[in-house]
Amino acid sequence: MSENTKDEAHAGSFGLRVLFISPGIERGELAQLVTEAVRSVGEGIVGQGRTLIGHVKAFTSVPGGSLRINMVDLDLGPEMEDRLPEGAIVEGEMRFMAAAVGLTDEELEQIVKGSLEPLGLRLEMGILGHKHEH
C-alpha cells in the first residue's frame, strides 16, 4: 500500500492532548472557552485564504462529565454536546484535532496552538502530546 491518501487529498492534520487544572471554572465558561477555541481554529484556516474543507473537533473529559465540540463549517458554527457536571470544575483533559485540505501539518499546528492561547489565561494547562501524522 504505497499510496498515501492524506497526500492524495492534499490534507494536513494536527492533534493535541492537554491536561488542565483550575481553582474552579463554571461549566458554562469552560464550554464557551473551548467553543471559542474551536471556532478560532476554523477562522484561522479561513484566514490562510482557504475554505474550511475539513473538521475541527475537541473533546473535554472531566470527573463526572464531558464536552464534545465539532465544527465543519464556519457559517454553521461549532456544534456542542454538553454533558459537563454542575458546579466548579477543577481538573480535566482536553483533546483537540484539526484536519483540513490545502494546509500543511505545520500550518495547522500553528493555528491550533494560537487558538488555545486564551484557554491558558483561565486554566493551567500542560500539553501531553501533539502529533501530525496521518
Binding site: E3, K6, R95, F96, H134
Partner: peptide, 28 residues
C-alpha cells in the same frame, strides 16, 4: 487522521468500547 485520538474518547463516553488505531491511516 490525527494521532491524538478524539473519536475513541467520544465513543467510550457513550458507553461503547472501541479499539483505536493511531499513528497512521488504516487504508495505506
Amino acid at each position: 487522521v490525527g494521532e491524538v485520538g478524539v473519536d475513541g474518547a467520544v465513543i467510550e463516553s457513550n458507553g461503547l468500547r472501541s479499539v483505536e488505531i493511531t499513528e497512521g491511516c488504516i487504508c495505506c
